[in-house]
Amino acid sequence: MTASVYRKSGGARWLVAVALTFMVLFLVLPLATVFAEALARGFEAYGATLTHPDAIAAIKLTLTVAAISVPLNVVFGIAAAWAIAKFDFPGKSLLVTFIDLPFSVSPVVAGLVYVLLFGMQGWLGPWLREHDIQIIFAVPGIVLATIFVTFPFVARELIPLMAEQGRDDEEAALSLGASGFQTFLRVTLPNIRWGLFYGVLLCNARAMGEFGAVSVVSGHLRGLTNTMPLHVEILYNEYNFVAAFAVASLLALLALLTLVLKSILEWRFGYHHGSAGH
């Protein structure tokens, strides 16, 4: 009934037109430009820039960072969501607030906090130097910054889901003699798998695409501490547009792949995500 009401109204048609125009202007056109620029000098040049050692190093580093930070955030996310959704304890609302912190704080600030903590002049700087551990301007710093920025994705996806499912299934499993671990593996995990997959998808997309926080702690050492987004920036600043857009096109492909998987998830399994819509 509402649909037919809207169809007849001229105002609604206007709104749709405006939305579509904006979408084309600000989303489709830039995405097309990325691929157009990347392929401006043909497939050969495109391939050559992507197989350049620096580019390969950047891709490898990005994959490594994602491969470390996403699993860690899956563990943290499940643990936090479990605690928040299934138990009452003092300080619960504080924990929920902290989980949202990475969303509310600028990624650059997050990066600076790590520099302040682990940098040469930072609080832990002297101790780290003594023990010959380098975090800032090295891979560990990039991983830490990425974990911080992507922390909320899994937890925020799971909290409403787990809260809605309640504790009955777990209690049923326990009453049937299952251990805590068996209950988690055979009851809790299957109940949250689609939500978890969704959270991982978003978490991964952000982990690979993160720029601000990583930029601060990376030091931009070519072939060493440059992730793909940072590499794109460097190439662009050097007026190497084809190379810059070629690497950018990979990130764009990742985004498209994420969208496709997300849509499949929503259509095929009727999964509607909760509140982590950032």
Partner: peptide, 20 residues
């Protein structure tokens, strides 16, 4: 003693069947 060690069968109001 925890529920697992009491040898009780518990039937929940909303069944709590494992849906998967």
């Amino acid at each position: 003693l925890k529920v697992a060690d009491r040898k009780v069968g518990f039937v929940f109001q909303h069944y709590a069947l494992f849906r998967h």
